[in-house]
Write a protein that binds this DNA or RNA. Structure first.
Lengths: 329, 329
DNA sequence: CTGAAAGCGCTAACAC
DNA sequence: GTGTTAGCGCTTTCAG
């Protein structure tokens, strides 16, 4: 039925070994036999069975991607970057959504290992203790993209959210805009904590105690953003730093709906840098996180790891800037 | 190094066959031996090698997804629906982005077949003649989601865009809003043509010739939407039907930037129903395409096909409605 | 430069 | 119920 390497060998009057060699670009094949084999391959329309190949070679040219939610613009931008470089290096990608559920994360990881993927990329995610153990045990290259992880020896790529948050807070403080709200999204506790520390450092530099000025809230999507708007105003916030772009837009429209002038009354800076930030009016000021690049660089790092090339630094920090648009004064 | 079925068999003092049986839930195993085997599996922390399994059983529990761009909200919503039901049925998903490039589509398809996926889902895409031949030859279940395809015998799931477009146009005509713009996105020519036919039918029903009233434009993203706004006004459009949500928002903001009152001067209806439509002000009227469901139903259909269950109808049309929000009067 | 043969880790008849 | 035995389609020594 389906044509195998054996059929090709027979037709070309060579051994399977030789066919295998031309398939894999092994130079130890006389040009003429190579041509002969290639002709037969074309004629028979032969395509090697990647599964058999994987079993024999212990390499599947497949990498697993564990992602909270592919329909979240933040993650899908990362995923796109990652997939593009995977394609360059001839890797396929198996994607699993976890909704940040630890159990799902572990299942996904174990499934991927069963499938003998050559490497795994985590986007966001919590990496519970169990998963960490599994990583340890599986002995397979893993890299984390776009999500801080607490004291873990896994290679990762991200921007420095501590510095970014500190920079934003400092600017606000300098403008005498001190009553800040920090609206977390529950994406990565570790990272959100880092940002909070950054803001506190900014207050500290100004001789102030951040705890007296920073109010914490949580909103991840548009609706919850809109819902917390009144609370922000009631608590006299001058500005908010919002992790989730959708929540930021929700807050913005909360202002719109309540007839509150923005950014006069409340300034907003969001932190995810999805396409959304410039697709609303007023445009939202935000950290320019290089999402696509984080994914791309992460995958590049993984290819190196899978290839056992040495890597200069396994935790890479990409540059960012803060774009002040029209939700800030 | 890694523990295999053979190790489990030895430790449990049974044959590999028996281990395989408990692994696959084969009922022909005495409960006590089943327990014995399971204990050893746990103790050894054994996990079957899915690649070996795939080779032996000719089933990989993996399905391929060919998608224009995962970072496009329209497609990622479909993908999420699809992935959720894939997970329910214990399938993993290999995703490939094609940017609607025929060559990439064909490569992706062939790669997926090499990997012995059990089925393939196309989201959007052009399905050039070559790919159609490949589908024919590969003899593997394929379903197309969220994209019309011209005269092709491949199972698919979508909504009836012809009727939707006709309904919208009829409403406009009845309101004496006859100078329509149709802003295509280049997603699926076939489908966009279908919509155009639908609009023409609406004019025809009103005793009018659609060609005299409908102006065609193309814009796929936010910026091009904004860019074509002046042209729409210069050509005296009363309303536009826009395939891409992002383009629709672009047009909306084009109006904003030019100080043109919307929807008084120009009404907008968009057709992709991504989350974006309710995340701008004014909220955009749109066809309520059940994106998630299209993906979910498509994957469910594929599981049936892969399982060789019989299927009532291989082209399924999901219900939709038209939501008139605040970009229409 | 090429071929023979031994697996890779598992499933699936087929016996018993 | 359980074990034996062939493969699945390929890569990879090892000879020559």
């Amino acid at each position: 039925m389906t044509v195998t390497i054996y059929d090709v060998a027979r037709e070309a009057k060579v051994s399977m070994a030789t066919v295998s060699r031309v398939l894999n670009g092994n130079p130890n094949v006389k040009p003429e036999t190579r041509k002969k084999v290639k002709d037969v391959i074309d004629r028979l329309n032969y395509r090697p069975n990647a599964v058999a190949r994987g079993l024999a070679s212990k390499k599947t040219t497949t990498v697993g991607v564990i992602i909270p939610d592919i329909s979240d613009l933040y993650y899908s931008a990362l995923a796109r970057g990652l997939e593009d470089v995977a394609e360059m290096y001839n890797y396929q990608i198996i994607i699993t959504n976890t909704d940040q559920d630890s159990q799902k994360e572990e299942n996904a990881f174990l499934n991927l290992v069963s499938k003998q993927v050559d490497g795994i990329i985590f986007l966001g995610g919590k990496l519970s203790g169990k998963v960490r153990e599994d990583i340890e045990r599986a002995n397979i290259p893993v890299v984390i993209c776009g999500s801080g992880q607490d004291a873990i020896e896994v290679p990762s790529v991200n921007i420095n959210y501590y510095e970014a948050a500190k920079e934003i807070a400092s600017k606000f403080i300098a403008d005498d805009t001190k009553h800040l709200g920090f609206v977390t999204g529950g994406y990565s506790r570790y990272q959100e904590n880092l940002m909070l520390e950054g803001m506190k450092a900014a207050f500290s530099d100004a001789g102030l105690n951040g705890d007296d000025y920073i109010m914490l809230e949580e909103a991840r999507d548009y609706d919850s953003g809109r819902d917390i708007f009144p609370k922000l105003i009631d608590n006299n916030r001058d500005a908010v730093i919002v992790v989730s772009d959708e929540a930021a837009i929700g807050i913005l429209h909360g202002g719109h709906d309540h007839g509150v002038a923005m950014p006069q009354r409340l300034q907003i800076v969001s932190c995810s840098n999805t396409r959304l930030v410039t697709m609303v009016r007023p445009k939202i000021s935000s950290i320019s996180v290089p999402l696509y690049d984080i994914g791309a660089v992460g995958m590049r790092l993984l290819t190196k790891l899978m290839n056992e090339e040495k890597v200069d630094s396994s935790v890479v920090e990409l540059p960012y800037s803060v774009e002040y648009r029209t939700t800030t004064r």
